[in-house]
Computed example of a mutant assay.
Amino acid sequence: MLSKPKILITGANGFIGGALSAKLISTPLWKESIFLIRSSTPEEGLMRLANTLRKHGVRTDQLLTLGLHQIICGDLNVVNRWIDDPRLRSIENVVSSAAIASFGNHPSIWPTNVDGVLNMAHGLSHRCKLRRFIHIGTAMACGANAPSPVPEGYDGGQETIHFLEYTHSKHEVERRLKEELPDLPLVIARPSIVVGHTKLGCSASGSIFWVFRMALALKAFPCRIDQKIDVIPVDYCADAIFLLLTKPKLKYDFYHISAGQKSSSSFAQIDASIAKAMNRPPIKGYQQKSYEQIVQMRDQFTSLLGACNRRIVAKAIKTYGSFSTLEMAFDNKRMLSEGMKG
């Protein structure tokens, strides 16, 4: 007899959601978990999720425990098409990880990250007796004018200077979840910059890691090479979300999943790790250059970086370059107080 589902995961095919799902599959909670997957059939959804889990190191024998009954076909843009699925009635815990993450003004950012999440939260709050609704945001939703280290629970409100439409949307949906659903058992988890995996490297996703590779190939970035950046591996992030999901009682409703001031890494340390992995010497000749100076090197982008979209490269330099000069760290005392290792 199949267990009644108690956990709903959205964004399981994403980087963070995939890492969390890969952790869940080796626990008893797996049998109680269902996944919202963008697909036209359960079979297609199962295949997509299995491919993601495989990239996160899940063994074939474990993948065989994934069943069609665990797949809900749909996405956040069409909540009305799946919110009445009878399997959702027994859901107690939600991990809201699905989102559109983009450097640009992608037309789906606000419909998905704000309207979609809100529609889902409203729908589930009327159909389920929720114990915990964990919304995965981003630490960069604090804005460029936040203090450093950024305190957990910090909200600059309307004065927030947003880095991107993506970070703006994440800030907005948190505000509206609190405002529109005051009784929702909301827990906000804001990961810092998530790059790679401690054991699998970038096999699951090269997301953001390519920005470091790009800066090192150009031997230039807007920050000094000794400046620090708050970066964590995706399996650490998944471990933290799992703790927030499973701990019987939490002390707070807002957490940073971050390295914090103590464990943030300098670009020199990041380069040393990359150099060791690639069996090459550490970088020499690095120069701190402004965004405008680096863009003047665009004719060299292809020769230094290989085939690339120069517009996207420039946008990444502007976004992460601006962020890196702030040397911003995200306080993680709350997460550590819950038992997470630093």
Rank of each mutant, 00 (worst) to 15 (best):
H162Q: 10
G156E: 04
A121W: 05
N105W: 05
R132F: 04
G153T: 00
A99T: 09
G104E: 15
F163G: 02
L130A: 06
N145A: 02
P107V: 12
G157Y: 07
V114S: 03
I136C: 08
E159L: 12
H122T: 10
P111R: 05
I136G: 00
G137H: 03
S102D: 15
P147T: 02
Y154H: 09
G156S: 07
W110A: 10
I161V: 13
H126N: 13
V114N: 01
M120H: 08
D115S: 14
N113H: 09
L124V: 03
G157V: 06
R127A: 11
F103Y: 15
P147W: 00
G153Y: 00
A101H: 13
S108T: 13
K129Q: 12
V150N: 02
A139K: 11
I161L: 14
P149K: 05
N105T: 14
A141D: 11
R131Y: 05
A146F: 01
N145H: 01
A139G: 15
T160K: 05
G157H: 00
V117E: 03
R127F: 04
H122K: 15
D115H: 14
R131D: 10
L118P: 05
A146S: 13
P149L: 01
P149C: 00
K129D: 09
H106G: 12
T138R: 03
H122R: 15
D115N: 13
V117I: 12
S102R: 14
N105S: 15
R131T: 14
R131S: 13
G157F: 04
G123C: 04
T138N: 08
A101I: 15
A141M: 10
S108A: 14
A146H: 06
A121Q: 04
W110F: 14
M120A: 13
P147C: 04
R131V: 10
I109H: 11
A99P: 05
S102T: 10
Q158N: 14
H126C: 12
H162C: 10
T138E: 03
I134T: 06
G143C: 10
L164G: 00
R127S: 13
G137P: 03
K129S: 13
N119D: 14
M120T: 09
F163T: 09
I100T: 12
L164P: 00
N105V: 07
C128G: 04
S148N: 09
G104R: 15
